[in-house]
Nucleic acid binder design. Structure first.
Length: 418
RNA sequence: GUGGGUGUAGCUCAGAUGGUAGAGCACUGGAUUGUGGCUCCAGUUGUCGAGGGUUCGAUCCCCUUCACUCACCCCA
């Protein structure tokens, strides 16, 4: 047996209702905020991700699916969406069309990691970006859209965590202050933190080990070291969120895994997801577009992990799809005649099914019941000779005999009020 | 890359201190010559994850390996 690849899952027909639900709702909500969809390839030149995500990040160092194509170019399956969208934005000079672009995307991403709950090697993200808008209103609009989407799909138990990482003016100073602080209490830290504090000091603040938490209890906060502009920006974001009645918690220890983030960063977290508690995350990336060779425009965006979203979905909120009609036939003549009736029903846009194999009436009825068909039509030899058909309401259990030429008018009436 | 757990029917899982396996669900047929759900009856399905070792004999014991899964690292 040839099996699929580790960490890459089939999405089977039984799961598809949930996926369609998420995709349909996201289009409605995001369009109402003026966002346009963009589709970019799954493969990019490796260099794009090294430059945008950062050479020193775990994603680039060990998690990318990278290979040489037949002409020797190094290509990578995208580990996230923002880099590709920015590449496309710059390449097609979208900034020349509109000063501000609002874009969203839906699609698979790839990271070579050990799979576990809520983490897969091929996974799917819904992402949104506002490019070319520096105002804190953009931050708040994006967060508002994220919350409205969660509300729409019935997710109520996620909490929004907010932080600000500062900008190239104020971040280096804080970073050094933090490294100095950590150096002073190195012996209280776990081996991981001792190894990484020079390289990623913020990460130490987020360590789960109890000793590290204690040692870092009174560590300097990034929020106390923001420059005036960043501080003002962050204050406005918090004020507007409050005015929109969007609940949030400030978490000054929240870390981002990608290098390009500046100022506002955020996560939606939930306790229902196992060890990976973030279902959505994002932030501002004011230097990214320029660093990729585009104009000096700011940006902000987020990505939602769809598999994680599905773990949080309450299945009872999903719309159920039932066939309108199931056609039961008895005998060969009725099978032929029924088949052409079926075809006409489908042409009318009805969801109609039947069995082709000549099973017993009971077996066909069982099938209709299993599919939860609303109405069953029964066409046997007797009905055929009288030019009639039986119409049965499966929910009520009532059944009538009608003339065949009345079938479509009657179906129109019966199915319209469902 | 590191650590724990689990691999028996399509699915969820029992099982014996070594004598080649069972239940429920699902599926099919019947009880009702042409009527679903409930009930009852009958039937189908297995290289017991793979390879090797010990043994008269291994699904069970030993070794190796693979897969899945959870967690670490890190992240959506």
């Amino acid at each position: 047996m040839i099996t699929g690849i580790k960490g890459m899952n089939d999405i089977l027909p039984t799961e598809m209702e949930a996926w369609h639900f998420l995709e349909n709702q996201v289009r409605e909500v995001f369009h109402s905020f003026g966002f346009k969809e963009i589709r970019v390839p799954a493969l990019e030149k490796t260099e794009l991700f090294c430059r945008s995500i950062g050479d020193d990040t775990d994603i680039v160092e060990k998690e990318m699916y990278t290979f040489l194509d037949k002409s020797g170019h190094s290509l990578t399956l995208r580990p996230e969406g923002t880099a590709s969208v920015m590449r496309s934005y710059i390449e097609h000079k979208l900034y020349a069309q509109n000063q501000v672009e609002r874009l969203y995307y839906v699609g698979p991403m790839f990271r070579y990691e050990r799979p576990q709950k809520g983490r897969y090697r091929q996974f799917h993200q819904i992402g949104a970006e506002i490019i070319g808008e520096n105002s804190p209103l953009a931050d708040v609009q994006l967060l508002n859209m994220l919350c409205r989407y969660f509300e729409r799909i019935g997710i109520t138990d996620a909490t929004l965590q907010l932080n600000s990482l500062g900008c190239p003016d104020c971040r280096p100073g804080y970073r050094q202050t933090l490294i100095d602080f950590i150096s002073s209490r190195l012996d209280g830290l776990c081996t991981d933190c001792r190894r990484r504090y020079q390289h990623n000091p913020l990460r130490v603040l987020d360590c789960k080990v109890e000793e590290c938490r204690r040692a870092c209890q009174d560590a300097p906060s990034v929020l106390d070291h923001l420059c005036a502009d960043c501080s003002g920006h962050f204050a406005t974001v918090r004020r507007l969120l409050t005015e929109l009645a969007i609940p949030f918690e400030v978490n000054n220890r929240m870390v981002r895994g990608l290098d390009y983030y500046t100022r506002t960063t955020f996560e939606m977290v939930s306790g229902r997801l196992g060890a990976q508690n973030a279902v959505a995350a994002g932030g501002r990336y004011d230097g990214l577009v320029a660093s990729l060779g585009g104009p000096a425009v700011s940006g902000i965006g987020f990505a939602i992990g769809m598999e994680r979203l599905i773990l949080m979905l309450d299945e009872s909120t999903l719309p159920v799809s039932r066939p309108d009609l199931f056609l039961v036939t008895l005998g060969e003549k009725a099978l032929d005649r029924g088949f052409s009736l079926l075809s006409r029903m489908q042409r009318e846009g009805l969801h109609a099914e039947m069995d082709f194999s000549g099973k017993s009436l009971k077996a066909q009825m069982r099938r209709a019941d299993k599919l939860q068909a609303r109405v069953v039509l029964i066409l046997g030899e007797d009905e055929l000779t009288r030019n009639q058909i039986q119409i049965r309401d499966m929910d009520r259990g009532s059944q009538d005999t009608i003339d065949l030429d009345q079938l479509f008018p009657i179906l129109g009436e019966r199915l319209s009020d469902i």
